[in-house]
Design a binder for these strands. Structure first.
Lengths: 197, 197, 197, 197
DNA sequence: CATGAATGAGAATTCATTCAT
DNA sequence: GATGAATGAATTCTCATTCAT
């Protein structure tokens, strides 16, 4: 039954709301309970410890991210279109997608100092890079394997950097500018200037 | 007497050490005092509130960052060399420079949910982009103003993304690979494939 | 089940004991917890903040005061007897009633510098004056409305002044003297020297 | 050199200001120092302990009170006028005299739980009652000694009660009403209805 | 005389967790 | 399944005081 969300999911959504609003330090079982309108004991009934709650929240983020990615991969589209769609999802600009960027920033900062979070982050980002590499290879069959990998790594770093900048510095990097820069980068990647025969 | 650091600076260094070791949530006045080997009251004598302590620590990071940048700008070097030096400073790879990357990640995540931090971050990153734009313009006088700005923004985003990835995912993005990718990007930027006459 | 007092009431009684023993500055959650033989957390489980604790304690005083007043109003007694009974309750002399006087003094001093306390005090004392005015009007139907109000205000001020003096200066104003002076004042009020026909 | 106020007196005035503004709990050496614009050490240079500071502040209140009383006793006036003047000073109504009432309330509440304060208060209020008794005796030579004493005690209690009520409950007992009630009471005391010959 | 560093105790409050119901 | 009482540790912060300068 897709789309069905139990009481646990409601709690996790409250966790993510708090995370976006006040960062990692804004999370406490008490506040989650208050935000969800349930008792403290109820939260602890579903998630025995605070760590379990946070881990579950991070898992939920991962799932939602995967779902959004899959939804973007339209059947019948060419690799270039897929690549643009995935890049657009990753750069995640615009007011309604800012929460995703903020959560990503918070999670990455936590990963830098919290090994369990780091493991999840590494696995996931490796998968994303692999996906990008696949699409680049398909769109640019002329490139050598190493070049494909390099392009994928650079692209992912660029998308991460732009997403963070757009979320925190909308003045310097407005959403539409971030998208335009991504498009420019992909243009150069997908339609390189070829030396004349 | 250069290099002399008062008791305040020692406290701030302890704050930064804790920040790198355990992230933002690892900071408490008690732990800072313990780490510095002084009483809690002593910490609060120098920094009235926790916020003042953290703000001062962030300022110290900014100062150190500025100093490192200035030290990189060797007199007599051309804009291309400067650009490579600044980029190397920003991508900040290697074990001994990991603390800088971690602090940068933590600060950015905080900026996403804490407006005062965000303001400092914005001001500073705008200056960094301005510096990059200056250097790009000097190294590529053929580029139009808008293209210069685009290259600067893309370069900074790429450096941010690679620095974060290198700090959190050394498996996927080892330090030397991050540097190589930066070099590759700068090569393309500084020595573009020119159409034949 | 009359007389049943929950754990909250026990805490409030400890608050009042501390208040009488050491005044407003003697109150701290820690000391209340110690006096009640419970943990600090337990106190804060019942009263989230110190202010809530003090407010509840003051409410308890008000309730007890109201109950004592009502117990004094015997059915079938004339207004003169009622007036003497209420006055006796208000002047509140004697060792066993000193706590009531001390709490009243502490509360009034707090009302002078703490608006929320002042509001409660004003409402309550207005009701007391109204009660006195009613009784005076009933006992002295010959008095004009304004005179009744004046007598009530003067009587309440006198009772307050004597109660405070008896509590703090038992040498100058011993309990029995305070009662005698009240009786004297009420004698003059209830049986005025009438000009002969 | 009367009227000369050293730095100590400035500190004491700050103490009294804080007392009126926030009550006894609002006093701390830190805040007094801040309010006076001096360092904490400077305050402690003049008053070794917090208790010494508060004791000195209370003494200053006593001195100022005595001075105001003496200034009211105009030479050449009859005892009735003196009595009215002293009563007016004690009831202390009006916005500009509210601080005096508040300090008196705070001091009395403290006296109820702090023996040293109680001793000072008792001594002083005994003197005030003695003064009132003297004036009553002079104005009403027909009264027996006990009656004089009773009238003095009642008068002082009434003045205290009205002063406190006027300070805390200006709605129920406006300043001018307090003065009118005092005048009414003194009228009855000084010009009693005498039985016709 | 005055300052500021330093300390240690105590303040209120929030927190995660356990347990009985 | 769910609730609320209770606890003990930890939080930031304020406080009075001592001491060296």
């Amino acid at each position: 039954m897709p789309g069905v969300t139990g009481p646990s999911d409601r709690l996790l959504d409250c966790v993510l709301d708090l995370l976006v609003a006040e960062g990692y330090e804004g999370i406490s079982i008490r506040r989650v309970a208050t935000a969800a309108g349930v008792s403290i004991g109820a939260v602890q009934h579903h998630f025995a410890t605070k760590d379990a709650l946070l881990t579950a929240a991070m898992d939920r983020v991962s799932q939602q991210f995967q779902q959004r990615l899959e939804r973007r991969i339209a059947p019948g589209a060419g690799p270039a279109e897929w690549l643009r769609a995935v890049a657009d999802e990753l750069v995640s600009t615009g007011e309604e997608r800012r929460p995703a960027s903020v959560i990503w920033l918070v999670r990455m900062a936590r990963a830098a100092v919290h090994e369990p979070t780091a493991e999840v982050h590494r696995r996931e980002w490796q998968q994303v890079e692999d996906l990008l590499a696949q699409l680049v290879a398909a769109a640019r069959p002329d490139l050598a394997e190493q070049s494909v990998r390099d392009e994928a790594t650079v692209l992912l770093a660029l998308l991460d950097g732009l997403a963070g900048a757009a979320a925190v510095e909308p003045g310097r990097v407005p959403p539409e500018r971030a998208e335009a820069l991504v498009a420019r980068h992909l243009d150069a990647l997908l339609d390189p200037v070829r030396p004349p025969a």
